[in-house]
């Protein structure tokens, strides 16, 4: 699995407008709707599901990153939206720090192994401070995509 296969380029937001969790998630869901990854009529349902999941336990796992996610029976392919927040979003993170990089992950419900593989891919990079810093400092979609392509290139094929 590669970032370029799962990240929806039109759903990369280099500067999130909101610093509130639910609003930031809404920005990312709306970007996926605009990119036609999510049908318009499913927008509210997805948003509600992602927020409900956050309320059960924050996906702000520390180090300024959060990976909100939802599994859906209507999603055919795994899709990721990325939001960068220079100001930081209050995600109720486990380490209480504001979140600067958000990876919103939509996974097909019937393919739990894809979901786990995507988590591995994402955290395989997010654990590196260098990657987190570059991502946080990216100011354009192109800069984010370049960073992801570099990450893809650094992974051994398997």
């Amino acid at each position: 699995m590669r970032f370029r296969e799962i990240v929806v380029e039109k759903a990369v937001i280099p500067k999130l407008a909101s610093t509130k969790r639910d609003e930031a998630i809404a920005e990312l869901v709306d970007a996926l709707v605009a990119a036609k990854t999510i049908a318009k009529k499913e927008r509210d349902e997805f948003l509600k599901a992602v927020i409900a999941r956050e309320k059960r336990g924050s996906t702000g796992f520390g180090h300024g990153v959060a990976v909100p996610h939802v599994k859906s029976p209507t999603v055919e392919r795994l899709a990721v939206a990325i939001g960068i927040s220079p100001d930081g979003v209050d995600f109720n993170a486990l380490d209480r720090k504001p979140v600067h990089s958000i990876f919103l992950l939509l996974s097909p419900e019937h393919r739990p192994e894809d979901h786990l593989e995507a988590m591995e891919l994402i955290f395989g990079q997010l654990r590196h401070e260098r990657f987190r810093n570059f991502l946080r400092q990216a100011t354009t979609t192109a800069a984010v995509i370049t960073l992801l392509e570099e990450a893809d290139a650094s992974r051994p094929a398997r």
Binding site: F61, P112, E113, L116, M119, F123
Partner: peptide
């Protein structure tokens, strides 16, 4: 570490 545990991609 939650992040590192997620890197195991441990399926059923």
């Amino acid at each position: 570490s939650i992040m590192q545990m997620l890197m195991l991609a441990a399926t059923a």
